[in-house]
């Protein structure tokens, strides 16, 4: 009885400050949303303006006569370095790199997580610790050693080509980037899946063993179908990281036909042929950002859920 009275009093007494709290919270949220959305807004409106309008008008103003011209030009005509065929080729380069790199690193991470939680062996925590270490190694420190490794792979590819007439992808810059991203991503994907599978009921594995399922049958039929949330998290995380990577891309495929989107975008902006075409640059940047945006929108609702699932049990 007395507790009810106390809580009643608290409610009425705190009424005024609660409204104030709400105002402060929503005000701050709106302010930061504005700060974050402003650059995107400027990019979007600029990409739909003509050059005249950009040079004469306000940066925040809406386009007077909206035009898709800059987008078309960015996609198919703008100059990247010396070739002027737009960014479309580089866009596909990135897709060709990202899709296999994300899929391979995610699947290997799932397999690692499965082994590290359900097929424990002596020293499994040490192995996991070492794999986690990969998450903390700065990109820059592996640039040169990795270049040496890739160089060796390239020479191996040459030998293969001489012997069989086909290099099997060794030395191909896109394959090189896939390799680098898979190796570098394994630490993260393993961490995600291990923490998720840690909470996965072991009795299911035992039941499947009694049912006669093999190591890979259990993985494919029991583990993978029940990993959707963490799968989505890992795919989003890997996709964003690999798509946005500039350092490895510029170091190992910085020139030539295999150049990924990020490097190409940099070259578009840096190519100086008279006037800087801000609208084309902005359109190109928007195109470069679209895939990650799409991945977030499509799979985003799983992202938070999956992160929480991993975090609580971790």
């Amino acid at each position: 009885m007395s507790t009810v009275a106390i809580s009643e009093r608290r409610k009425t007494g705190a009424g005024g400050s609660r409204t104030l709290n709400r105002i402060v919270i929503y005000g701050l949220l709106a302010f930061f949303a504005l700060v974050y959305l402003m650059p995107l807004f400027v990019m979007l409106v600029t990409s739909f303006k003509t050059m005249d309008e950009i040079q004469s008008g306000n940066m925040l103003a809406l386009p007077q006569s909206p035009t898709f011209e800059p987008w078309v030009k960015a996609w198919g005509e703008t100059c990247v370095g010396l070739t002027c065929a737009g960014i479309k080729g580089y866009f596909w380069n990135s897709i060709k790199m990202v899709v296999p790199a994300v899929l391979i690193s995610t699947l290997l991470g799932a397999l690692n997580g499965y082994v590290l939680t359900k097929w424990r062996f002596r020293g499994d925590t040490l192995v996991f610790g070492l794999m986690l270490f990969a998450c903390f190694i700065p990109f820059q420190s592996v640039l040169l050693p990795m270049a040496t490794v890739l160089g060796s792979l390239g020479r191996f590819g040459m030998t293969l080509r001489n012997a069989t007439g086909y290099s099997f992808g060794f030395g191909n810059p896109t394959v090189n980037l896939v390799f680098v991203h898979v190796v570098y991503g394994l630490g993260f994907t393993t961490l995600f899946f291990r923490n998720y599978y840690e909470a996965f009921p072991t009795e299911l594995i035992k039941a499947a063993q009694i049912d006669g399922a093999s190591f890979f049958q259990i993985f494919r039929r029991i583990m993978l179908p029940n990993s959707l949330p963490i799968f989505v998290v890992t795919v989003i995380y890997q996709f964003t990281n690999i798509w946005n990577d500039f350092l490895f891309a510029s170091a190992y495929a910085g020139t030539g036909d295999a150049m990924p989107m990020t490097v190409a975008l940099n070259n578009v902006v840096n190519t100086s042929t008279g006037v800087v075409e801000y609208n084309v640059n902005m359109a190109a940047a928007m195109i470069a950002a679209l895939p990650t945006l799409l991945v977030y929108i499509i799979a985003g609702r799983y992202f938070v859920r999956g992160l929480m699932a991993g975090a609580v049990k971790g």
């Binding site: 009921p201 009795e203 035992k206 039941a207 063993q209 009694i210 399922a213 029940n226």
Partner: peptide, 20 residues
Amino acid sequence: LHPSQRDIAMVFQSYALYPN
């Protein structure tokens, strides 16, 4: 012998039904 070759069947405390 592997569990599947012992000609046994098991019912678990948590039922261990495959959720998918």
